[in-house]
Nucleic acid binder design. Structure first.
Lengths: 343, 343
DNA sequence: TTGAAAGCGCTAACAC
DNA sequence: GTGTTAGCGCTTTCAA
């Protein structure tokens, strides 16, 4: 059943059916109703493939995520997915596995004709190739919205969080507890989150006249295992830290693993504050003091930004191409892990 | 740039270009090379939309998931996504939010022309409408593969786990520890996992001549809050249970919440075994004894089953329509929470 | 307000 | 082996 069948049945031309289907106003009410009756009677649904081919645009968007098993990203995807559903968009999901090459491959295979826009949390901010590819998509009229992480050298739309202030607040909370030997297990410094959280850490120390010791700053690569080794290194220092700032949920797990293995008790032998929450810990003995963010909302808003870009029409047409970057605030929730000698 | 441009450039006809593009064998090697040079030189990529419209099939699949924030499903998606990427399929992700109506809506809006197949964990097994819709897709030549949960009254391909044996083993582990008053916080009995885990629970008790008390069986609806209330109800019984079998990761969190609030200590005041793991608890004081499954692999295999169905060709053509249902084994990992009066 | 016809980019049956 | 041509199902000028 296609548009010709409907036309014949309704005694009009295909173009009229098309007009009705697309809510054009230049069609007589009586005709519209006549056509609608056939459409509903036969439960006719237009073929999107054909329409997309004809018009040149689809209603699919692609989301490239570094690790869908990380609850942070699952929540982002949930937000995107909800907003997309409400506005009748479909979401392609691609897991880049925190792997730059894989990201390139996926980006290369992405068919412009199949997608209307891209939402991405890029693997690395150092990576010029991804940045280049994304800009190419923009030039082709396929807008890109970044989430959480930025890309190399370039301004693209995005939803980010104020990590500097959040991190600073977290570390100051440690300082308030009397800590002076505070270490940081960071992510890749080349990523916006990794970088900004480190800046926040530095800022807090500087503000409080605590000298920054380079041996107290170790990258855990935003991974549990990396963090575990980093923790090990830290605690083997001659003057080991009394407190740690962990830069994301994965590195936090690495810390916890280390503490557990070494029998270090949180809030007694060691203090910990971290970026991002781990909700499963709520009912355990681990009472994480953490910087929280409106994660679901970040995903939801990314999709909204993308739609705004669709509404803008083709960027190439206008010079008034406004970059939209939104930064949401993070906040600290104290639960006890910032304490020391407490128990 | 389209197939005509390539044809002109290479001095052949569009159909020859098409033949080269699709690796048909009836084209002279010299011609093929000539065409390939143009294709590569111009970095020409065929328009998938047009091809799909022409051939009538696409390389997109839809995955309908009840809750992408549940780590279990995130892992399933990861498996699906990896297998899809390897075989050059794209994955549409839809979150049904454990909501039947939403599931129907999504299924209704799914465009047959846009998808080649469906992988779904249906919200409810009681729901005839979803079952009906899925069968309609099958009839249209769009195969469906179930994951984890079954659908009402109908045999469709799927990947499941042996929940009966897994649950039984878990409960027997409690019995071994001397427990007699063992409760179960179940999921919807109308779902295969909910149902089978309950059967496993019953089987374990029967095998060990322990009478089954209906007040010991309460549904937590596979949700944290439902489980929390269920736990409350259980512990207010005159003869409250000494051990609990929790039927999934969400209900486990509900139990933990209750225990925490009431100051009940695991392995001392109460015992707990559960279905599915919560990996974040590994470094805490909660040492869950849990039934594990090869979750990632289940997702990966679901995608493989779907491809097998694609290879089968149109079901309507042949009467030898073989249903492929695979059941993976679950296994128990003891970590201590099955103990009682232990600490 | 409506219809005829060309076109979106590709495939495939048929002819040469 | 290769080219011609008629679709796939829709949109959109242009003319009426």
């Amino acid at each position: 059943m296609n548009i010709y069948d409907v036309a014949k049945e309704a005694g009009v031309s295909p173009s009229t059916v098309s007009r009705v289907l697309n809510n054009k106003d230049n069609v007589k009410e009586a005709t519209r109703e006549k056509v609608m009756r056939v459409i509903e009677g036969k439960a006719y649904k237009p073929n999107l493939l054909a329409r997309n081919l004809s018009v040149g645009i689809s209603r699919n968007i692609a989301f490239l995520v570094p690790d869908i098993e990380n609850p942070f990203f699952a929540k982002i995807l949930h937000g995107i997915s909800d907003c997309a559903l409400e506005n009748d968009y479909n979401v392609f999901m691609y897991d880049t596995d925190e792997n730059t090459e894989r990201e390139h491959k996926i980006l290369n295979n992405l068919k412009p004709e199949l997608i209307r826009g891209i939402i991405i949390t890029p693997v690395s901010e150092l990576d010029g190739e991804t940045a280049e590819k994304l800009r190419t998509f923009e030039k082709q009229g396929i807008p890109v919205v970044l989430v959480d992480r930025d890309i190399k050298g370039g301004k693209l739309d995005g939803v980010f969080s104020n990590d500097i202030d959040g991190a600073c607040e977290a570390v100051e909370c440690l300082i308030c507890e009397g800590h002076r030997r505070i270490a940081a297990i960071t992510g890749p410094e080349t990523s916006k989150p990794g970088n900004e959280r480190l800046i926040g850490y530095r800022k807090a120390l500087e503000k409080n006249d605590i000298p920054i010791k380079s041996e107290y700053i170790i990258s855990g690569s935003f991974k549990e295992i990396g963090s575990y080794y980093a923790m090990n290194e830290l605690m083997n220092l001659e003057e080991s830290p009394t407190a740690v700032f962990s830069c994301n949920n994965m590195t936090t797990l690495g810390c916890l693993r280390y503490f557990k293995e070494k029998g270090l008790k949180l809030a007694r032998d060691i203090s910990l504050v971290c970026f991002d929450d781990i909700k499963e810990l709520e009912y355990t003995d681990i009472h994480l003091t953490a910087v929280l963010r409106p994660v679901y909302e970040m995903g939801y808003e990314a999709m909204q930004l993308l739609e705004k870009r669709f509404e803008d029409g083709n960027i190439l047409d206008s010079n008034k191409y406004i970059i939209r970057r939104h930064t949401v605030n993070a906040w600290l929730v104290k639960r006890g892990s910032e304490k020391y000698n407490w128990i």
